[in-house]
């Protein structure tokens, strides 16, 4: 395992298009659910334990070598909002392109060929971690960090929130991120034996409802 490779994959500057997505924060800001650092923290904590946990388990399972098609179908079942399914596949395609250029390999090529319309981003994240010589825990940590890092960065732009405050939110969530990643890795090991029904299915109603409202807005700063 290379710690430096993990930093490359987790870097917000990794050219995979994630900066164009707010993880639901834009809609939450528009509807007054996020107004300051405290509500951002509460939003991020809820996202971490729902969408973040599911994404981390998908990424960890993909990193362990579980069937990407089965994981992609499981991601669909855990993503009722079609706007979020579309966003996840678009991000998956973008990450696939970046990962194939960064860590060329037959496995990524094969998945890219088999799924021209893309697979859910966390599944690609797990495959990219594998290609980079990283493990399931690394993939899970990338996923949980992304699940809160995206909304935090977006909220800095949307609310002109002090970047120091946003970063402090992420630092306060770090112990919960670690625990969530551990939970995700345990689930991923169960998936290897018991199949994708072992994946967590934690859901957040307002993220699902908000994603559709957001997709219907004519003017948006972020794609999701």
């Amino acid at each position: 395992m290379s710690r430096a490779a993990l930093l490359v994959l987790a870097d917000g500057r990794f050219p995979a298009g994630g900066h164009a997505h707010s993880g639901g924060a834009e809609e939450a800001v528009r509807t007054g659910r996020i107004t300051d650092a405290a509500s951002l923290e509460s939003f991020c904590r809820g996202r971490l334990h729902t969408a973040g946990l599911v994404a981390a388990a998908l990424a960890a399972a993909a990193a362990l070598g579980c069937d990407p098609a089965a994981l992609d179908a499981a991601a669909d079942a855990r993503t009722p909002s079609p706007a979020l399914r579309t966003a996840a596949r678009r991000l998956g395609r973008q990450l696939m392109r970046a990962a194939r250029a960064t860590w060329p390999g037959l496995e990524l090529d094969a998945v890219a060929r088999e799924f021209p319309r893309g697979v859910h981003q966390p599944v690609v994240l797990g495959l990219a971690a594998r290609a980079a010589g990283l493990g399931a825990a690394d993939a899970a940590h990338c996923a949980v960090y992304e699940s809160v890092g995206g909304p935090a960065t977006a909220t800095v732009r949307l609310l002109s929130l002090d970047p120091f405050d946003a970063t402090a939110v992420l630092a306060r969530l770090a112990p919960e991120m670690d625990r969530t990643a551990d939970t995700a890795v345990s689930a991923a090991h169960r998936v290897r034996k018991g199949g994708p029904d072992e994946l967590p299915a934690a859901s957040a109603p307002l993220l699902e409802i908000g994603a559709e409202a957001h997709a219907a807005r004519p003017v948006r700063l972020f794609a999701s």
Binding site: G24, A28, R33, I34, S39, S42, F43, C44, R45, G46, R47, L48, H49, T50, L53, A74, A77, R78, P80, E176, D197, L199, P200, A201, A202, S203, A204, P205, L206, L207
Partner: peptide, 18 residues
């Protein structure tokens, strides 16, 4: 496949804006 957890002792943020 969806699971909602809420109430005291549920994972954090269940009553929050997400």
């Amino acid at each position: 496949d969806q699971e909602l957890a809420c109430g005291p002792g549920a994972p954090g943020g269940w009553d929050g804006p997400a």
